Amino acid sequence: MTSPFRFTSPEPFDRTTGTTAAVHAQVTRDFGIEGALPFVALSPAPDLMAGAWALMRESLLSGHASRTEKELVTYGVSLANRCPFCVGAHTLLLYAGGDPELAGALARGERPADPGHAQLLAWGQDMRKSAPFPADEAPEFVGSALAFHFINRIVSALIDEESVSGGADPDELLDSEAGRALVRAVRGRPEPGLSLPLLGTEGPWPAWAADTPVGAAFGALRSAAHAGAGLLEERDAAFVRESVAAWDGFSPLPLSGEGLPDRAERPGARLALLAARAPYRITDEDVKAWWVEPYTDHCLVHLVAFGAMLAVERVAEEFTGAARA
């Protein structure tokens, strides 16, 4: 069977131990998907895996805001980031949540008929727009959006989306034991904070997260992702940071490759910058140019996560600036 992973060989979820196994168990229980591919892709780096799971769980799955409304935001994020795997996943989750008409319209490329839903989708595509949710729900909506700005990039960089996306009928998928488990999970509301004991790192909480578990999860994921900078020479890490800081947070990297480091001369900087701005453009040649002994799957996942987190922080800056304005 062909692996869905482009460059790495993660341990099968049912053979893992320790933190990795504990995260997989929570994902199965609270997300409703056994061996969810984005978290398997992150599993060579358990601190990243736990941080990404905690951020998604505490913002998208837990809390008080409408799950449907948060799914619309994450659908918009995934559209903006050109992540067909995640677009398809959010469509299925809307079906599972009991919104088949909305999910069907989105699957046909239509905008939501409900104006409020349309606003949420548009905000997910560009968080510089006016926030269409109450201020006290910002930790959930912003956390959900930023979780998928990170997860989209991990998926596009590390998973073969063509081999795992596509065309199954949602009714057939949900009319199975696994589908019924997904429905139960989507329509449930897991207790907040239960992912936090899985976190192995800490970091500063962002102001938008207030005093919520979402802030702890974001801080931990950020700290774990920034550890990937240690895989680069200092000048390359600085170059990537400066390049992402000069970006508007939303436009893709030009296809001409202007500003993209040379593959042969600065392969690590190239990979990290692509992970930030155009992860779907990472090629086998890009990875082979960088991957030398003693690098491992753990290292590649951390380098991709470093670029992805820089992008997440840049998007968060744009949101914060727009909110102040």
Rank of each mutant, 00 (worst) to 15 (best):
L158I: 05
G219K: 10
D236E: 15
L198D: 12
G193W: 14
W247K: 06
R235I: 10
L182N: 05
A220C: 05
S165D: 10
A157K: 01
A225Y: 06
L158T: 09
A246M: 10
R241L: 14
S165F: 12
L173H: 00
S223R: 11
L198I: 01
S195W: 02
D160L: 11
S176N: 00
E233M: 08
G230P: 02
G249H: 09
P192I: 04
D248F: 13
R189Y: 07
D211H: 10
A220H: 12
A224F: 12
V155K: 00
E161D: 14
L231D: 10
A237W: 06
G188C: 03
A229I: 01
R222C: 15
I154T: 14
L221F: 12
L232C: 08
L173N: 01
E233G: 12
A185T: 06
P204F: 07
L221Q: 13
P204D: 06
D248C: 00
V155R: 00
L182Q: 08
S156N: 14
R189I: 04
P197R: 07
L174W: 04
H226G: 06
D171T: 08
P206N: 09
G179A: 06
A220T: 08
A209S: 15
E177V: 13
G230K: 04
L221P: 11
R189C: 11
T212E: 11
F239Y: 14
P206C: 08
G200T: 13
A210W: 08
P204H: 03
R235D: 14
A181E: 07
E233R: 10
L199E: 08
E202V: 04
P206V: 02
E234K: 12
A237Q: 09
L196W: 00
G200D: 13
S251N: 14
S176R: 00
A168T: 05
S251R: 13
L231T: 09
E234V: 09
A245V: 07
V164P: 15
P170A: 05
P190I: 03
S156A: 15
L221E: 09
I159R: 15
L173T: 02
D175I: 06
E202I: 00
L182R: 01
R184V: 01
R222G: 09
T201C: 11
G200K: 07
W208P: 02
P170L: 04
P192R: 02
F239D: 07
L194K: 10
F250N: 06
T212R: 13
L232I: 03
D171K: 11
S163G: 14
R187Q: 15
V183E: 15
D211K: 13
E162Q: 13
G167F: 04
A209G: 10
E162I: 14
E202T: 12
V186K: 14
G230R: 07
G249T: 03
V240C: 11
G167L: 05
A209H: 07
S251P: 01
S156F: 01
A246P: 01
R180P: 09
D169P: 02
